[in-house]
């Protein structure tokens, strides 16, 4: 029996879909069998980020309404054998997916997969409630901005009311130089407000945008910092202790030598 993890944030545009795609891919890289589920009915884009939009035949509403079996709606990733996704419906109404149908789908997926990652829509209405039902765990994504932190706080309150175990936090799009200059909320501030365990921090990286546009999750390419951050997050999810990455710019050879000699 696998685990169902919902990725949520409250606010839109903080990186739920990107995080879902990358964490899922990173888990698949670690040899886990993973299914990504897009629940953003009407505004699906997980398939675009994964580069699988041309392979969709059936979607999650088709499963819910009995138009197809779950196996028929599973889209196999083009890079990894262990990675699948279920797309959201684009043309149907939000209310077409009920909580009970979602629960049944997640339950069935958990039988076959190690991890079921659920990409939650923005907001706290029907779509949110559908996405979190059936989840064993929650990941809350936020960015170092007041508005995003406040929405995350609201969502955490709602998750607590639904009796989902304490969520884990991902702080996305950190710009190290802005944090250093005090122009961005720093990580300790955010944790002190939200009082959650930190699952990982992801630096702002142009590579992520570039890769998303090419339909290629960033983690596939190991060279960027964001890629490394997502790989670390995946390793923490499977229970490996991985220290937080240092976001400061790489220091030069001389600086490192000085530091080693105790002069830095």
């Amino acid at each position: 029996m696998g685990e169902a993890i919902v990725v949520t944030s409250g606010k839109g545009g903080v990186g739920k879909t990107t995080s879902t795609a990358n964490i899922g891919t990173a888990l698949a890289l670690l040899g886990k069998k993973v299914c990504l589920v897009d629940t953003d009915i009407g505004l699906r884009n997980l398939d675009v980020v994964m580069g699988l939009d041309n392979r969709i035949i059936f979607d999650i509403v088709d499963i819910a309404t009995g138009n197809c079996r779950i196996e028929q709606a599973l889209i196999k990733d083009k890079r990894f054998d262990q990675l699948y996704m279920i797309a959201a419906a684009q043309t149907k109404d939000k209310l077409a997916l009920s909580t009970s149908a979602m629960q049944a789908i997640v339950h069935k997926l958990k039988m076959d997969f190690d991890y079921v990652l659920i990409d939650c829509p923005a907001g706290i209405e029907h779509g949110f409630r559908v996405a979190i039902t059936g989840a064993d765990q929650a990941i809350v994504v936020t960015t170092p901005e007041q508005a995003a932190v406040r929405d995350a706080d609201r969502v955490i309150g709602l998750l607590e009311a639904e009796k989902i175990p304490p969520a884990k936090l991902i702080i996305n799009r950190i710009r190290p130089h802005m944090v250093k200059n005090g122009e961005m909320l720093d990580i300790d501030d955010i944790i002190s407000v939200l009082s959650l365990d930190l699952l990982g921090i992801v630096p702002d990286d142009e590579q992520v945008i570039k890769n998303a546009n090419q339909g290629e999750p960033t983690v596939v390419k190991p060279d960027s910092k964001a890629s490394q951050a997502y790989r670390n997050i995946a390793r923490r999810i499977i229970g490996e202790p991985v220290p937080l990455m240092n976001l400061q710019e790489q220091s030069g050879f001389f600086k490192r030598m000085k530091k080693m000699m105790g002069l830095g």
Partner: peptide, 24 residues
């Protein structure tokens, strides 16, 4: 516990919160 954004504690009398009261 933490009183989070969007939550409200209302009482006729004194209120004591053992925990944080977050923005919102």
């Amino acid at each position: 516990g933490t009183v989070r954004s969007g939550q409200m504690v209302e009482h006729d009398g004194d209120v004591i919160i053992i925990g944080n009261v977050n923005p919102g």
